[in-house]
Amino acid sequence: MSGGQVKFPLDDLLRRDRFPHLWCQGCGLGIILSAFCRAVQEADIDLDHLVVVSGIGCAGRLSGYLNCDSFHATHGRAIPLASGAKIANPDLKVVVISGDGDLFAIGGNHFVHAARRNLEMLVICSNNFNYGMTGGQLGPTTPFQALTKTTPFGNWEEPLNLVQLASAAGATYVARWTVTYTQRLTNSIKKGLQREGFAFIEVVSPCPAIYGEMNEQGSAWQMWEELEAVSRIRDGIPPAEASLDIHERIICGDFIDRERAGYTLRLRQNRDVARQKALASYG
């Protein structure tokens, strides 16, 4: 039963010398990492052409555990950094994995515009409802009335619905899962990896050590059980109906799945036009 010498199926995709990882007990980020690796295997993604970019925060550390080209960018800037890489070398398979604060508070503008452009990249957001790395402050997805270190009397702001934002901004694939749907999550990531357009997956992920602790949600397993109890799969429903209330109902599923020309494809077309125009004017 010792795992010491046995090679595990995901070992080739991981920087094994970086383990054990730095995440807390029961943190959903390890589950996302594991699902991502299985999806990369199942989608048969060439590791030499895979680039994973993350921002700052707990989720920002995920790229450092993957055995591929990976970049730990500045806070909120994973998407534009990844955009530069994808545009300059469209042969790369570019993935951004980061947290709700990084992607939607400080980096929110970049998310909107990358989705609008339909940049060919997969963005996975680990949504744990607070800033974990800095000790549990208010984030853009913190539920109304939830306790954080900066809302010590209860959050008076309304949270952002990430699925609705992504769909409105033009993402061609939009899904939400909780980490408890491990197999569905893997399948969804696989779908996102295979898409030639802007794909977005929100993963509701427990933060037992900080958010759970502050809001008296019990042990890691109790948080898991509550997530399972309130989650329902509603594939294909309009994003407007994809509500998220962590104590009442978390609607999961594939919500948007549509085709639209990718950004780097459009850039190639622009090159062709530019060259033709240049030939016409210079002879």
């Binding site: 039963m1 010792s2 383990f19 054990p20 007990q25 037992p208 890691a220 898991w224």
Partner: peptide
Amino acid sequence: IHIRSSECKGCRY
């Protein structure tokens, strides 16, 4: 079943 006990954080999942 192989377990890397040295990397386990005891979450009980």
